[in-house]
Design a protein around this nucleic acid. Structure first.
Length: 663
DNA sequence: GCCAATCATCGATAG
DNA sequence: GATGATTGGC
């Protein structure tokens, strides 16, 4: 295999002997390329692809790497097992779950479902209500989940994050326990359970461990800085039999602390595994020096200094441009204008991206882009699956796949006229009490919704007969659901149109359980404009989190203003601000050549208006003015301190005078 | 008693 | 703008 185009450090990582290996790879230093070559090299040495496991942050990333590896060593690369920790765990549990008492037909709950179940348990235990302040379901789920992913106790977390709920700790613990029982009883797993159960399987069942880890001759982990304690341990456990684990990451790009990620994993790796070979990749191949100068400035402003400095292989390029504006309306206008200019100059839309902290920061821009007829795709933020009508359809599919799934029943039953929460609960309980669990419309025949239930039971029976053809199942479910849409929602039209894409999504799947799990584990992540659908020229709009690992010729970073980016939630906590800074670093280092930073004084959004306090990510950056070209558009900051014109007439005369004498 | 409609509270990032 | 507690109506 040809390794000539790799530099010395990359080659060292690629050809390292089996063992423990940490690759510290700064942004743009050819991290992906190194991993791809490592994979290819292993296969070229005669390794069995089935014994190689590649754990990445998204499944898309894994597929992309396998594609590139197969270009080097042929199609066998596709037999490498690759995906996220969660999807890998899912696959293992489908096969070995019976050893820890898991049915084969378990369902995976996405975040919203999990929160709903927590909410049900919450009302069931009569917590909250009556003026009592008790955490909301989302808060509760977050607490429980953080506990699982970091290995910390609920009491420690409540004490640290919600000290005002300390009195409720016993109830919170009771709720957490009930939630866990409920999931077990119903054969449903939330995201965390996938990891927890795999971890347990590997730790506590020696025979399972020998079989699973025995099949992992080489484990490779990408974006290791964003793994949490549990994931770190799983990676380590997977390598115990063959002792070959390579992790790749960059602690300066750690941006998932909110999900329990800890840089400790990367920092302590060499200590945990003695004899670890460490490789550092420093040469940046992506960006021009001016872009890197700014990135280095961001690093320099970090409280905890990273001992790194990026230098470029291609020096030439324009300075990043910092555009100061009055508000997010101007921001949208300026971005559209610049995009059009760049396109005129021959930069295709596909080579440009707009990045932002929160999905809603791009709302106005989306309108403007639409008005200017610029096709775009939006990544991150509100998912397709979270729309009520989509959840309805999936609830029905889940009921068909796993009749123990009480949460899904609860939702499906409430679709009928005359069934509310109370009745849904009772019918649901009856379903679960039956053995095997099934809907018996008999007892309800006299009620208003009796015929509906009978119809539903028929539909479910019909689905059972066609289980292996997921496309056909989805068609049937839609045939049942679409006619009811108008009664359920005012805007049935667009919702029906939305659902048209479902059969396409389902087509080709042979197994309903797996289809549902896949959708939960890798939700379709982009929202396309019609124009973007039609052509393949479109500009990416993406949250910074979703932009991880990607790169574009031109990058715009929106809403650099305290309260927006950095987010208002982090302003009080220095540690959170540091994470915002790393996020900024990630955004900046996505750019190959052109970088525009947009700093509006006001970002309108729900509740958060009238910021205007500057942006500490910029203000704390040393020598900012040497690193960027600063432009003020519209009302420059400070202009409002000028004396106000007394009236329109005066303003008009003033303008006339100035334009005459200065113009 | 239960369902459906009305009013206060709190907001992000994602597998 | 969604969620949850509350209130009004059958």
């Amino acid at each position: 295999m040809d390794l000539d185009h790799l530099n010395a450090a990359q080659r060292a990582a690629v050809t390292a002997p089996p063992g423990y290996h940490l690759v510290v790879a700064g942004a743009g230093t050819g991290k992906t390329r190194t991993l791809v070559h490592r994979l290819a090299w292993l296969l070229d040495q005669g390794e069995d692809p089935a014994g190689v496991v590649l754990l990445t942050f998204t499944r898309r990333a894994a597929e992309e790497m396998l594609r590139r590896a197969s270009a080097l060593v042929g199609g066998k690369a596709h037999r490498v097992r690759g995906g996220t920790f969660h999807s890998f765990a899912h696959g293992v549990l489908r096969r070995h779950g019976d050893r820890i008492g898991l049915g084969r037909a378990f369902t995976v709950l996405d975040r919203g479902d999990a929160a709903d179940m927590v909410g049900l348990v919450r009302t069931e235990l009569a917590l909250g209500g009556k003026g009592r302040r008790f955490p909301q379901k989302d808060t509760l789920l977050k607490l429980i989940s953080t506990g699982v992913n970091t290995g910390r106790s609920l009491s420690a977390l409540v004490d640290e994050q919600f000290p005002w709920f300390l009195n409720d700790l016993p109830d919170i613990e009771r709720l957490a326990a009930r939630y866990a029982e409920r999931k077990l009883a119903q054969d449903v797993l939330d995201y965390d359970d996938l990891l927890v159960h795999l971890d347990r399987l590997l730790k506590e069942h020696a025979d399972a461990r020998r079989e699973i880890a025995g099949g992992c001759r080489h484990v490779l982990v990408d974006e290791y800085q964003d793994t949490n304690r549990l994931q770190g341990r799983i990676a380590a456990l997977l390598s115990v039999v063959h002792g070959s684990l390579m992790v790749v990451g960059d602690e300066a790009q750690s941006i998932y602390r909110f999900r329990g990620a800890t840089v400790e994993n990367i920092l302590r790796f060499p200590t945990v595994f003695s004899g670890t070979q460490v490789t550092v990749l420093e040469e940046n191949y992506r960006s021009t020096q001016p872009v890197l100068d700014l990135a280095n400035g961001v690093l320099a402003s970090a409280r905890e200094r990273f001992d790194k400095r990026l230098h470029s292989q291609q020096n030439e390029g324009p300075k990043p441009v910092l555009i100061e504006l009055a508000d997010d309306g101007d921001q949208a206008g300026v971005v559209v204008q610049r995009v059009l200019e760049l396109r005129e100059q021959g930069v295709g839309l596909r080579r440009m991206a707009v990045l932002f902290r929160s999905a809603w920061h791009a709302n106005l821009l989306e309108l403007e882009l639409g008005r200017a007829n610029i096709p775009f795709r939006k990544f991150g933020g509100i998912q397709f699956l979270e729309a009520a009508h989509v959840k309805d359809v999936f609830a029905l599919l889940r009921v068909a796949a796993n009749p123990r799934d009480g949460l899904a029943w609860f939702r499906v039953l409430q679709l009928f006229e005359g069934i509310g929460k109370g009745t849904a609960q009772r019918i649901g309980d009856a379903v679960l009490a039956a053995d095997p669990p099934a809907l018996d419309p008999g007892p309800w025949a006299g009620r208003r919704f009796g015929p509906d239930l009978a119809h539903l039971a028929d539909l479910l029976a019909d689905i059972q007969a066609h289980r292996q053809d997921v496309g056909a199942v989805v068609e049937r479910v839609l045939g049942w659901y679409l006619p009811r849409l108008p009664a359920l929602y005012d805007d049935a039209g667009p919702r029906a149109k939305d659902l048209e894409s479902l059969p396409v999504l389902a087509d080709g799947h042979r197994d309903l359980d797996r289809f549902l799990a896949e959708v939960a584990l890798e939700p379709p992540s982009s929202v396309d404009t019609e124009a973007a659908d039609a052509e393949d020229e479109w500009i990416s709009l993406s949250t910074i989190h979703s932009a991880k690992g990607l790169e574009w010729h031109t990058v715009f970073v929106l809403a650099l203003a305290d309260g927006a980016f950095p987010s208002g939630y982090s302003l009080q906590d220095p540690e959170l601000i540091e994470e915002e800074r790393r996020l900024f670093y990630v955004a900046v280092t996505r750019a190959e050549r052109c970088l525009f930073l947009l700093a509006p004084r006001i970002v309108r959004g729900r509740g958060l208006t009238g910021l205007g306090q500057g942006c500490r990510l910029l203000d704390e950056l040393p020598d900012l003015d040497q690193r960027v070209e600063r432009i003020a558009e519209g009302h420059a900051p400070g202009s409002e301190t000028a004396p106000e014109p007394a009236g329109e007439a005066e303003a008009a005369r003033l303008a006339a005078v100035l334009s005459f004498y200065d113009g």
